[in-house]
Structure formats: C-alpha cells, structure tokens
C-alpha cells in the first residue's frame, strides 16, 4: 500500500461514528421524496403508461377471461411465394409488444408498415424480394383457462409494397 493519505486513515479502526445530515438537508430530502412519492401514487391511481416513469406498474394487470382466446400478434413481410419473413422479433428494431401497442395506429396508417420493409431490406440486402407486409393475430382457443390446442390466424391488415421495395428485381 502506498503512503497513507488523510482519506485512508478512515479505515484504521471500526468506528461507531455517525455522519449526520444538517436538519435543512434532511428536510429537503424529505420534501423531494414526498413529492416523488405523491407523483408515484397518483400515477398509479389516475395515470397510465403515458405518464412514465410514474405510470401504474400494470404488468399482467389486465384480467384475461378464461374462455377468451389468447392473442399473439406478429408482423411479417410476405415473399412472392407467400412465405412469411418475421419482422416483429427484433428484425427491424421493434419488439412484439411494441408492435402490439401500435396496432390500432398501424391499421389506420398501413403505409407505416412499408417503412419496415425498406428498413429490413437495408439491413438484409440478401433477402428475397418482398411483396407485402402484414399484421397477423393468432388466437389460441381457451376453455376454462386451459388451451385446447386450436387456433385461428387473423390477418388484420396487409400493405402491398411498391415494386421499388422489391430491390428492383
């Protein structure tokens, strides 16, 4: 160990010393803490996710009905052969849950889906030509909360791509 500085002397012996805060510093901390607490509580009682970081921690807070199918959304690009190229597994920088949060907006503005195909082709130049992008919801049937194994695929929206997105092929 090098030369002992003033700072190092603090470990010379276990100490019972308490570093106190001045009353004013304690008060400031309590007031700011109370304000953050109030925002947090009111965010959960009245707010929503828009109020981040004070929104309600609503993970899995929605009640899922035991007889209503479980939905799972995917966004895919379609090739000429009708094959699906997944886009909602992180391929274009968005997660499945993020797509699910924007589904209503994407159904209203399907041209936004075209941007994804462009993005995908830039990152995957080796890709086969794409002809469309679609949002598909798979509904897995439940009975009394138990999956029956049956499911339906429902295409919410399909956006045909202009020839330009097909890599000029």
């Amino acid at each position: 160990m090098g030369p002992v500085s003033d700072r190092d002397t603090i470990d010379q012996a276990p100490t019972d010393e308490v570093v106190e805060l001045p009353a004013k510093a304690r008060l400031i901390r309590l007031v700011i803490g109370a304000a953050i607490l109030a925002l947090t509580l009111s965010g959960t009682v009245f707010g929503d996710d828009y109020a981040f970081p004070f929104g309600p921690p609503r993970m899995y807070a929605t009640r899922a009905d035991p007889d209503t199918p479980v939905s799972s959304t995917r966004v895919v690009a379609l090739t000429d052969a009708g094959e699906e190229v997944p886009l909602s597994g992180g391929e274009v920088g968005l997660r499945r849950a993020e797509f699910e949060g924007q589904v209503p907006r994407l159904v209203d503005n399907p041209e936004l889906l075209g941007l994804l195909a462009e993005n995908y082709l830039i990152n995957h130049p080796e890709s086969v030509p794409l002809v469309a992008v679609a949002i598909i919801v798979r509904r897995l049937e439940l009975r009394d909360g138990q999956p029956t194994g049956a499911y339906d695929d429902d295409v919410l929206v399909t956006y045909p791509l202009a020839a330009g997105s097909e890599d000029g092929a």
Binding site: R58, T62, R63, A64
Partner: peptide, 14 residues
Amino acid sequence: RFGGWDWVNGSTLT
C-alpha cells in the same frame, strides 16, 4: 384497477 377484483379468477398467468 385494470383487471378488477375478479383479476384473480381470470387466466392472466395461463
């Protein structure tokens, strides 16, 4: 608040 008091009887975990 979002799931209601009946949340416990839903199938959220399933």
